[in-house]
Design a binder for these strands. Structure first.
Length: 222
DNA sequence: TCGTGATCATCC
DNA sequence: GGATGATCACGA
């Protein structure tokens, strides 16, 4: 049981202690078994890092370290440092969003300060052999904030106008909206074109790969 | 059912 | 081969 970090520096120090280790090494230290595949354990790496860094396990819509104002994100990369997947951020509200601003949004709250932990995750590597990279704290610069806010406002306007079912993952420069549920049968309430309540897929915001790639490039001067 | 942790797997 | 839409596990 790892205790919660009391400061950003302590959190970062801990994360740096993990750099260079394989997931097997970290799992062994925590007494956890390494799954053969992530197919039925998609969040395993993220959960492992949460345990190793003392994050409070839970599914509350807030940052992983609220008292530090920091969100923890693992990101799978290949040997060249390119992200292998988009990055899930949070669910989006589909009703009662009138008047909601970017600054008040949960997505902004989560992305204003992120502890990124790259994981060398080439598909050829067994889960346990995947290696933890150098962690770093990221705060979006003015340009990045602007891009995210633009996408968010465009998407939220479509949702407010009842156009939820016309939104695809293609819209947005750096953010995208995609289904985020157990499966295609899991539905939630949304708003239709005539303002009526409809049942639709829950959606979540994701960061597109070129955006997170650029963050890594900026950090490591790749 | 919602929201967390995400990756899978099919389609283009 | 890469991105989109679909999916897996779990706690509350």
């Amino acid at each position: 049981m790892v205790e919660r970090p009391y400061s950003e520096q302590q959190l970062l120090d801990r994360a740096q202690m993990l750099a260079g280790l394989t997931l097997s090494q970290v799992a062994n230290d925590l007494g956890l078994e390494v799954p053969q595949s992530l197919r039925r354990n998609k969040g395993w790496i993220g959960n492992l890092l949460e345990l190793a860094l003392g994050a409070t396990a839970g599914s509350k819509p807030q940052q992983d370290f609220p008292e530090l104002g920091i969100e923890l994100k693992s990101i799978p990369i290949n040997a060249a440092g390119k992200p292998l997947e988009t990055t899930y951020v949070c669910i989006t509200p589909l009703t009662g969003i009138g008047g909601l601003t970017w600054a008040q949004s949960n997505i902004f709250n989560k992305l204003k300060k992120v502890l990124w932990i790259p994981i060398l995750s080439d598909k050829s590597l067994a889960i346990g052999d995947r290696q933890i990279g150098s962690p770093f704290i990221w705060q979006p610069n003015e340009r990045e904030q602007c891009l995210m806010q633009q996408d968010w406002e465009e998407i939220m306007e479509l949702i407010a106008l009842g156009e939820i079912n016309t939104i695809t993952a293609k819209i947005g420069q750096v953010l995208q909206l995609r289904p985020k549920g157990a499966n295609a049968k899991a539905l939630t309430k949304g708003v239709g074109r005539d303002g009526e309540t409809i049942m639709t897929l829950p959606r979540g915001f994701y960061l597109k790969i070129p955006f997170t790639h650029q963050i890594l490039i900026d950090q490591f001067k790749l």
